[in-house]
Design a protein around this nucleic acid. Structure first.
Lengths: 196, 196
DNA sequence: CTTCAATGTTGTCGGCGCTCACATTGCGCA
DNA sequence: TGCGCAATGTGAGCGCCGACAACATTGAAG
């Protein structure tokens, strides 16, 4: 931690923390390894001792985002007293709230092409898989007797709607359609209605 | 057109055409003004005589994309023999087909933040407005007696679903849910069912 | 024929990701 | 205790990019 020593002490974590702040405030495009290094008082090349390249740093941040999202979603599913439909509704709200409160991070997690690659960054495979699996679990709980194909299709459709709404709302596209944008609750209800 | 003269002759249009090809094949991120200039046999600074900056060139391409999309959608609405629901369904198919055949262009049109700015590039305001307005017209035709608020909300929800599906499909995200992704027709039908 | 606006060129600046050879440090092991 | 090595940080440099400024060339209008 002492700043004047040759070795920084905790550069990897400080890079993650500083980059996360930038992602949340200005989006992933604003992350520059050179900038980061200067902010933390190290040389431009230092970050490369901890992350092979810029993408690896962003992937690590995205992975942390998935972990946070999964934690919040699991808190909803943990309440066994909730009806299936209500658990499903609250689960969508978790996604909608996450996207609204941390838009830059959400965008990095879902809009970057990390997960679409042949070989996604290994740090984010488990939490991302878990996040997607939870969507399926929520839908299954609301439709205990439906067959797998139905569950999957409804999950895909509902997730399309929620994700599309989030992306369009973030980009301010709904001003074309209405003065006041749809509320998160309205979206969650509409999605719920469409998948029940 | 003559290549050896000092003045190129039609640089603006050739820049647009060459950049459009790159957008469609590799996405907007792959567009480099320097590269473009070299390909067309002019100097690095020449493009700046025709477009103030890189964003302006991309905005012009996006505008052209909206014009193509509007043309295809209007061809559907022009058939007055179609039922409202069928016209709506075919309208969504126009979007889905456009997104599948020209993913890079679609992404530039809808994912870039041009339209979300305080002052969107003026070349793309009219065609983009028209494209969004057509969604509303299609929905109106399927629900002639619904009030405006309902039309708007259904349009917003349906567009969220279609747009979300397109983005997730392009990013290959549905492999988590199913082996074979949903077909365009299945999506159009699901959206139609949800908004009728 | 002259003049001028349109168009193209060269040079330059700052920023970026990334790599390489080298410097410093501290930890584990003899 | 002291030594050696792996981990970590440094500085220089490469090639790429967008953008600007000063200058060159051209064609068309008068």
């Amino acid at each position: 931690m002492k700043k004047d020593s040759y070795h920084h002490g905790d550069l990897a974590n400080e890079l993650l923390a500083a980059a996360l702040k930038i992602v949340e405030r200005q989006g992933a495009d604003a992350v520059s390894l050179r900038d980061l290094a200067q902010t933390l008082g190290v040389s431009r090349a230092a970050p490369y001792r901890h992350f092979p390249d810029r993408d690896a740093l962003l992937a690590a941040i995205a992975a942390r985002g998935f972990e946070d999202l999964v934690e919040a979603y699991e808190a909803v599913l943990a309440d066994r007293d909730l009806s299936g439909a209500e658990a499903l509704r609250r689960g969508w709200l978790v996604y909608l709230d996450f996207a609204r409160r941390r838009p830059g991070l959400f965008q990095l997690m879902f809009d970057s092409d990390f997960l679409g690659r042949d070989r996604p960054p290994k740090v984010m495979i488990p939490p991302a898989d878990r996040a997607y699996h939870l969507l399926w679990e929520g839908m299954r709980r609301a439709h205990p007797d439906a067959d797998d194909a139905t569950i999957k299709m409804r999950t895909a459709t509902a997730w399309s709607t929620v994700y599309g709404y989030i992306a369009l709302d973030r980009a301010n596209r709904f001003k074309t359609f209405m003065i006041r944008p749809l509320s998160r609750e309205a979206v969650a209800k509409a999605v719920l209605a469409a998948s029940c």
